[in-house]
Design a protein around this nucleic acid. Structure first.
Lengths: 363, 363
DNA sequence: TTGTACGCGTTATCAA
DNA sequence: TTGATAACGCGTACAA
């Protein structure tokens, strides 16, 4: 066979990483001793450890993790699979995960499924051989398939609630409930929920929370479906919102809320004087104009916690079926205010900009 | 020795991935034949390939990439090291890199150096054994150290110009030049450049471009240093900008520009009527209020190109010292407008909000 | 306390 | 066209 990468440049060539054998020869010991100097120094005489390490350092030796993985099955690597790296919800999560892994000496291989369940499936089977476990965020796969993958490798879910599979959940419902209470307190009687992807666990959770609290407080809720959870889609659904004649809008996430802010601004509707707007996730919320009232989700913590749970599973064997729930909370900024007291004519300012369509109430 | 992960659950246990040997036995062929059925099917009789693949599929066999890596030295993995995942500049870059790698069957391990050169160094040595090559973005390491790492593993830089090391550069200078021309055409005579990290290659490049074109067009340039390239720092330096009595501001990046927008808004200064603002990178620019005029950097393309260059190096041997430059361009939106024609009194509106300090011109 | 020798799962060489 | 077998670099029973 041709030599592997490390050997490809000849024994004396520059830039090559030496192997355990070369260190052994240089130090005048066996390969096993070199190995132990790094993994089980307690089994060796202190002088030996020191001598071996010194030689290793001089030669620039570092243990080959791949060879070690093949031998031990410990890859010191986990996979992190997300639907879309560029979605601002995920970078903080990735960072939390990355740092937790790093702190434990683990590497992170990254998978971007491009929002496709089929791609998730491909990535997961691909990673099965090179990682010890996987953190799967906001998966769109069917529960059965997720369970299958979970039997092949330790797997921790983020924002997907499948009994039997360890999971870390961000309870945006708690924050959403606060948001609706907040709006009710401000005198709003009629609000809209702008819905995200139908298959999204988070969306279902948020929609339900809004409906529940609204019902409890006697508010009417119109549901408007955003085509995608994006800024552009937020702008698009503005006219539908105006047609729905609401005084407050709770959006699926910040991007949509931000789009709605832009759409309202373009339509000459004042925020929060005419309409109040609430976002969710709080990833960009404090950099909008005006600063967005939003439900703050501890995404970074979720990433960190997911990795910690995974590493715990990798350590012990039975931390099975853990379910961690992280609370969210409403951060009140400048896009929510008292409901407009009076309507000057039969129609509000908003009427001038509606497209005439009306959305049904309640769904 | 203890069995590895794949063997840990016994030969018949569920969830285990079968090895090449089991497929060979089940198909009644040798391990070599199974291997060839996947890597060199042209060497086998079609019927054999088909039979082996069928058995493999039935057993759920997939080649173990780690074992393959140990044998061939081809890891089918590259590393991507960035200073900060959560910095909005990087996710698009990461995504481009990820997808290019994915298209070639490569995995990406992710490193976040937390803006620390020392961490970069640690990550790079750690990854040396598990990847074929690395893409290093916006590194803060000294050139000599980067060169050293580049001799150990194929390495492609993004946004760092070190001769001898393959690199992909985003020429923000071209866009910055356009920005200054644009402002000059609008009648501005006095502008500020809000500077980013002093050690940043991009910052040096941008500052120079602004100065050069400003000089050519006879504009005065005040330089204001932002403490960090963040939204908060942008807000902070607003007072200094007002004190500098400029009618236009060119910011190091979008985050700073966005902070400046907020700061100006809070100070009652109208954009673009009183002051024009230009951002750079264009990562959030079209979601600000008003939409930010910005220099658009093809970050996603940079990530993609960097990986393509790396893979090319991994393929052939001598693509050495390539230097790809990607142009940027100015996207004019709503934060730039004609310079205010007249000053109504001795002072502009802005004077009411300055802190009295003045910044020196030219630096 | 240290060395010997085998196995991890795969690919490549050589022979058949 | 296929099979037997030696690597790849490391960890670890077992023996010394």
């Amino acid at each position: 066979m041709t030599r592997g990468l490390t050997g490809a440049r000849g024994l004396t060539g520059g830039g090559r990483t030496p192997t355990i054998r070369e260190v052994a020869e240089a130090a005048g010991v066996s390969r096993a001793t070199v190995s132990r100097a790094f993994t089980r120094p307690d089994l060796l005489r202190p002088e030996t450890v020191e001598r071996v390490r010194e030689v290793a350092a001089r030669l620039g030796y570092t243990p080959n993790v791949v060879a070690r993985a093949l031998s031990t099955g410990r890859y010191a690597t986990i996979a992190l699979v997300v639907p879309d790296i560029a979605n601002p919800f995920f970078p903080p999560l990735m960072r939390g995960a990355q740092q937790a892994a790093d702190a434990a000496g683990y590497s992170v291989v990254l998978g971007d499924s491009d929002e496709s369940p089929a791609r998730e499936d491909v990535l997961l089977t691909k990673f099965a051989h090179q990682v010890e476990g996987v953190v799967l965020a906001s998966t769109r796969m069917p529960s059965a398939r997720v369970r299958e993958h979970a039997t092949r490798r330790p797997l921790v879910l983020v924002n997907r609630d499948i009994p039997g599979v360890p999971r870390v959940l961000i309870d945006s419902a708690s924050g959403m409930a606060q948001a609706v209470e907040h709006l009710a307190d401000l005198g709003h009687r009629r609000l809209a929920y702008v819905s995200g992807p139908a298959s999204s666990w988070s969306n279902q959770q948020r929609r339900r929370a809004v409906r529940r609290v609204a019902a409890a407080r006697g508010l009417e809720v119109a549901t408007v479906q955003a085509s995608r959870p994006t800024y552009a889609a937020g702008i698009e659904c503005t006219s539908a919102l105006l047609a729905a004649r609401v005084t407050a809008v709770v959006a699926f996430d910040d991007a949509v809320a931000q789009g709605i802010l832009a759409g309202l601004s373009a339509a000459g509707v004042a925020v929060p004087d005419d309409v109040s707007v609430v976002g969710c996730d709080d990833v960009v919320a404090d950099t909008t104009t005006p600063p967005l009232t939003a439900v703050s989700a501890p995404t970074r913590m979720a990433g960190q916690l997911a990795v910690e749970v995974l590493l715990r599973i990798l350590g012990d064997d039975d931390v099975a079926d853990t379910r961690h729930v992280l609370d969210s909370e409403l951060i009140v900024r400048a896009t929510t205010g008292p409901a407009p007291r009076t309507r000057r004519r039969r129609g509000t300012t908003a009427d001038r900009y509606t497209d005439g369509r009306r959305r049904s109430l309640g769904s």
